[in-house]
């Protein structure tokens, strides 16, 4: 039973690591490539480390807790390095698969009733802010729209 659990954990971890590196090859641009390794690989290594902790706690005399040190360290540092990588990529202006949204649509999301020229101005301003204060992916977008309250709408901060 224990051996079954251990081999399940080991196989799950190894296949997650494999899928993460497969995503590194198959995905098209850097912003989507960030998704594969940082999530799948830490999950894979996490389950491998849990398997190792169970193994060494049962087959040796004392409880083994080194593994959780590595797990906690990896879980803390993986988002930090992904954030810094996305920041560096936005700073260098790498090409992205996502299209730049229409300025009119960006104005309608917040319902401020401004004309289209105001929306395009806000779009350019946001673009400038996005190049300095870059944040990756979709998670950071609502937080960004709160921080910049004056501008109507927050368009996608990707480059052509």
């Amino acid at each position: 039973m224990l051996e079954f659990l251990l081999s399940l954990l080991v196989l799950t971890g190894a296949s997650f690591a494999f899928i993460g590196s497969l995503g590194l090859i198959r995905l098209k641009d850097l912003y989507t490539r960030l998704h594969g390794p940082t999530k799948a690989t830490t999950l894979g290594v996490g389950s491998l480390l849990i398997a190792s902790a169970i193994y060494f706690s049962t087959y040796s005399e004392q409880i083994s807790l080194h593994e959780f040190l590595i797990t906690i360290f990896l879980f803390i540092t993986a988002p930090v390095s992904a954030h810094l990588l996305a920041k560096a990529a936005l700073h260098l202006g790498l090409p992205s698969l996502a299209e730049i949204p229409e300025a009119e649509e960006a104005g309608q999301t917040e319902m401020t009733g401004t004309a289209q020229t105001g929306a395009t101005e806000a779009f350019e301003k946001n673009e400038r802010i996005g190049s300095e204060n870059a944040s990756p992916g979709e998670k950071a977008r609502p937080e960004k729209s709160e921080s910049i309250t004056k501008t109507p709408g927050t368009p996608d901060q990707t480059r052509p």
Binding site: G13, A14, A17, G20, S21, L24, P37, T38, T41, T42, G44, V45, L48, I70, L74, S81, L85
Partner: peptide
């Protein structure tokens, strides 16, 4: 980054 995490595995 992926390479060192795979090395840990």
């Amino acid at each position: 980054d992926t390479l060192y995490i795979n090395t840990i595995a």
